[in-house]
Design a protein around this nucleic acid. Structure first.
Lengths: 169, 169
DNA sequence: TTGGAATGTCAACAAGACTGACGTATTTTC
DNA sequence: GAAAATACGTCAGTCTTGTTGACATTCCAA
């Protein structure tokens, strides 16, 4: 408790950015920013019987076409039952296709159809537009810092997933 | 569509950080980092019949003791009915007190009890610990950039709420 | 003083997460 | 070749957290 104070007293001016108050500000910034981050795609999705869960699935299938269900599960961090509900509707609606694996026939490889790609574009255009504005306002140094801190906040296995996606492109 | 390309071609090297690929990376970083951000409090809350919604309410009541339900509503961005369910359990369990307003008897003023403050400490200690680690790893310049970008991502009314909280302390 | 606006509560419902159990096909291991 | 492990799908039930709609109370202004 009162770790901020301890930090503060023991290490002087240089670590002022680690006070409890500064951390609390960061926490709140994270909360409000995440709301903005999801607001635009949510708006698009609402009224078309899809939600944020569908968006996430579409996003990562787009990034890693032909990925397996298990793979997607690990990235999204949900149960297969939960993912299955989402995938089923996406497949029924013709946005995603599921192909039996060639080498391992137990696996299902997921890909976006043309309609799926179209929706993905629509959603990520909206999300990127906000991101681009924020990046432009903040400038390249701020963006570099932004990514550094975000990466430091991740759990190790998420960091792995993050890098796997990055390097896979 | 393909705005990233346009940007790229039209403005040369200086704006390379605004390519679609860079933006996509930022989006994914935001997704994975938010998971880490909520993981520790979630772990504490699980099994005590509370969830993230309770955490959020407790957090902001702690920051602005005596705040009204309406006020909290605006900050959290949910419906009053949704907040009410959460508040009711917190009040029943003796973590929050609700006092009828003196000047305006329609209002309820919310405060944390000692037990509420205790839980708040426990939760925010966990969340701050992760934040502090991330901050320390990233360094002060990165943290400054982090906050700049997050603020630029917020909607205007969230930005207002964010600053109101900051300045109120 | 009366009608509209604001504040908050109760009830019912939906999305999306979870667990647990089970079935099937396929691959791997012994 | 039989047994165990893996990958996937599904049914059923629960929980949290969001939503609307209806309603009571209180305040304020015409």
């Amino acid at each position: 408790m009162a770790e901020g104070q301890t930090q503060n007293a023991s290490s002087g001016q240089a670590l002022l950015y680690l006070t409890d108050e500064q951390l609390r500000q960061g926490i709140e910034a994270m909360f409000f920013a995440y709301r903005g981050f999801t607001a635009d795609p949510d708006r698009i999705l609402e009224g078309m019987s899809y939600g944020r869960a569908h968006h996430r699935a579409i996003h990562f299938i787009h990034c890693a076409p032909g990925t397996t269900v298990n793979n997607l599960l690990a990235i999204l961090g949900v149960t297969k039952q939960s993912l299955n509900r989402v995938l089923r509707t996406l497949i029924e609606d013709g946005l995603v296709t599921s192909h039996v694996g060639r080498s391992d026939k137990r696996e299902r490889h997921l890909t976006l159809t043309d309609a799926g790609e179209e929706l993905e574009q629509q959603l990520s255009d909206a999300q990127r537009a906000r991101m681009r504005d924020a990046y432009r306002k903040a400038g390249p140094e701020a963006v570099a810092g932004f990514k550094t801190v975000l990466e430091a906040m991740m759990d190790d296995d998420m960091k792995r997933a993050y890098h796997a996606l990055r390097d896979g492109r």
